[in-house]
Amino acid sequence: MDAFSSVVNTSTASLYVSILSIAFNPTAWNIVAQNEYRNKTITRMFGGNARYGCYFLAIMIFSFGMIRDHLYQRALSDQPRVPMLPAPYDTLVPTVMFAIGQLFVVTSTWALGVTGTFLGDYFGILMDHRVQGFPFNVLRDPMYVGSTMCFAATALWYERPAGLLITTYVYIVYLIALRFEGPFTDMIYSKRASAKKSL
C-alpha cells in the first residue's frame, strides 16, 4: 500500500473531479443524442433546424472536452512526480504518442466532418456511405484511440503514474460508451437501408 501511495495520491479532490468529468462526457452525449433521435428536443429548440441543433451539440461536446482536459491536467499537478522513462525517451515517447493520437483525432474529424463527428446521424443527418479512408482503414474508432493516446502521453510527459491509471480508466469508459454508441448508430443506418429497399 505504501508503494501505491507513493505514486498515487488518493486524497486529492482534483483526482475524483477528473474521473467524474471523464465519465460524464461520453455518458451525457450518448443520453442526449439518443434522446435527440427519439424526441428531437434540440432540433425543436432551433426551430426544427437539425443542422443548427447538431452544431450546438458540437460546441457543447468540444467545450466540455476542453474542460475535461483542463481538469485532467489539474489532477496530474496534484499527483506525485515519478520518473518513468530514461532520457531521451522521457520526452521522445510522449511527444510521438501525442502526435499520433492527435493525428487520429484530427484526421477522423476531417474525414467525418462536423456533423459526422458530433453525432449528426442522431439528428437525421446521415452520411452517404461509411468512411473507409485514413484513419478508419487503420482503426475502427480512431477518435477514441487517439484521445486515449493523448491522455497517456500527457501522463508520461509530466511523469505522473496516476495519469496512466486514469488513462486506463478513460479507455474502459470509452469501451463502455462504444457498446451503446456503436449498435445505436448501426441501427440508424440499418433503418435507412431498409427504408430505401422498401421504396
Rank of each mutant, 00 (worst) to 15 (best):
P83A: 09
Y189T: 08
G101P: 09
D186G: 06
F123N: 02
V173C: 13
Q102R: 14
R130P: 01
S147Y: 07
P135V: 06
M97N: 04
A153R: 03
E181C: 12
I188W: 00
F123Q: 01
D141P: 04
Y174W: 14
V131T: 08
F151P: 05
F98H: 03
F123Y: 01
V131P: 14
Y144G: 04
K191R: 13
K191Q: 13
F184G: 14
F136S: 10
F136C: 09
P142V: 08
L156C: 03
R160L: 01
L175H: 06
D186F: 07
G124Q: 06
L119T: 01
M127F: 00
P135H: 05
F184N: 15
V138P: 03
G113D: 01
V170I: 13
F151D: 03
S194C: 12
L119H: 03
T107L: 03
F123M: 04
V138N: 05
G113R: 03
A193R: 10
I172C: 09
P86D: 01
V106I: 15
R179C: 09
A177K: 05
L156R: 04
I176Y: 05
F134S: 08
M97K: 01
L126F: 03
E181T: 14
N137I: 02
G146H: 00
V138A: 07
T109F: 11
L119P: 00
T107E: 04
M97S: 05
T154N: 10
A152Q: 04
P183D: 11
I176T: 09
L92A: 14
C150F: 03
D186S: 13
G133Q: 14
Y189H: 10
G124N: 08
V131E: 13
I125G: 01
G116E: 04
Y169N: 08
T148V: 09
G124R: 07
T185R: 14
S194N: 15
